[in-house]
Design a binder for these strands. Sequence first.
RNA 1: CGCGGGGUGGAGCAGUUCGGUAGCUCGCUGGGCUCAUAACCCAGAGGCCGCGGGUUCAAAUCCCGCCCCCGCAA
Length: 322
Amino acid sequence: MRILFAGTPATAADSLRVLRDRLAGGDHEIVAVLTRPDAPLGRKRVLTPSPVAAAAGEAGLPVIKAARVDDDVRAQLADLDLDVAVVVAYGALVPAAALDVPRHGWLNLHFSLLPAYRGAAPAQRAIIDGLTGTGASVFALRTGLDTGPVYGTVTAPIGPDDTAADLLAALTVSGTGLLADVLGGLADGTARATEQDGEVTLAPKLTLEDGLLDWSHPAAALDARSRGVTPEPGAWTTLDGQRVKLGPVRDAARPDLSGVKVPPAPEPGLVAAHGRSVLVGTGDGAVVLSTVQPAGRTPMPAADWWRGAQHGQEVRLGRREW
RNA sequence: CGCGGGGUGGAGCAGUUCGGUAGCUCGCUGGGCUCAUAACCCAGAGGCCGCGGGUUCAAAUCCCGCCCCCGCAA
């Protein structure tokens, strides 16, 4: 089959590499890659190709850079005589007019068990919600947000220390494998899609605000949230009006941390050292800090930060005094 | 010219406003104490204060130029 791969971020680039390996030597060929245009990146605003564009370049695949699938892009795709297009986080909606350009339409690899967690940040939201497992789905693109019929799913556990990065990495590999299987099924006519069934939930893109830790919340919730927003957009709090970025925080009451005895838990937001751990009080107990990164500084172990942060004063995080 | 923070022994920081002997909390090395310890006591090593110019009797500190790191934003 002649396949178009559409994607933009690093996760999609990994998926492209995995898919290419999976298809190597078979009857299927990725004939082109669609990704978003180069964008200014970083403080210096250097125009940088998307991770997918970079991966495609390494693989020697032709790249179409476009912010939207407009008439011009649609014409290019039509010329490619595509059997199918696959989308992994392209970053723009595929308009209805383009949906039937490939012979078998468009497939989307989505990192949830649909119809749960439709939207841009499904894996992250699953972690934040404290789930112990989630999965990936391959479905047929239709108009509407992640609403098409599902060809297949894989499941994945969410470990107690898993961050969004960990989960995405795992889902990328297993999900791309699933994608390869579905492509095979489409080619030999055995693939079947079934309409989504179940409770619909939404997983919108994470904002900076989603990473703000509210110390009045329960320790377990803060633990889950901090992992779900790591590495993007990152968990954070404030100290003296300055943003302080945090690595994942762990619920001090978790069984696997039984070594950490929490004396009277500090009140919410108050920092206290205990042995080698640095604790922060929450709504119901304490969390253990892992890494701390004050604005303008490089990330450091919590104990190192604590050493220099005290100056004889009590340290209270997250106070909105600004 | 997008906005902003930072670079000081191995780590994290103070000192820069107002120039005048390199400081704190740790770590490290050696010794002591202890049944023992992430505890405690004593001693010690370790620093072109990011780089280059300038001002000055004197610069971590003031002036000019440059390099590197990071937060926000995109």
